[in-house]
């Protein structure tokens, strides 16, 4: 049927993704106990970003969606990042 265009992801792949996600969670917790100073936040956010990417592209099937939708999703994150950065142009220099 032409209507169902969603790609089928095998169980095995999903389990693999979960294992990576759990591993990343483990890392992010253990990194916190090492004192890296200001780097900790960066590392934590990078790992969270990687996890989000995995969830978006695999669990949410974004990997197999149209280019347009992928661009739109990226755009939303970029927009939020821009708003955050611009707000800090105020707070950082006050």
């Amino acid at each position: 049927m032409a209507n169902n265009t969603t790609h089928t992801i095998e169980y095995k792949t999903l389990v693999k993704i979960l294992l990576i996600l759990l591993f990343l969670t483990f890392i992010t917790i253990s990194v916190t106990s090492i004192h890296l100073g200001a780097l900790t936040v960066t590392v934590a956010l990078l790992i969270a970003g990687a996890k989000a990417y995995l969830v978006l592209s695999n669990f949410m099937h974004l990997k197999y969606e149209s280019l347009l939708l992928r661009i739109l999703v990226a755009m939303v994150f970029v927009l939020f990042a821009l708003i955050l950065v611009i707000t800090f142009i105020d707070y950082a220099f006050r």
Partner: peptide, 22 residues
């Protein structure tokens, strides 16, 4: 399912920001 993943997605950021501050 998409909605459920969203809930997961937000928690992925909430967890380190709330619980893991050093």
């Amino acid at each position: 399912a998409l909605y459920w993943h969203l809930v997961d997605l937000i928690w992925i950021f909430l967890f380190p920001l709330m619980y893991l501050i050093s």
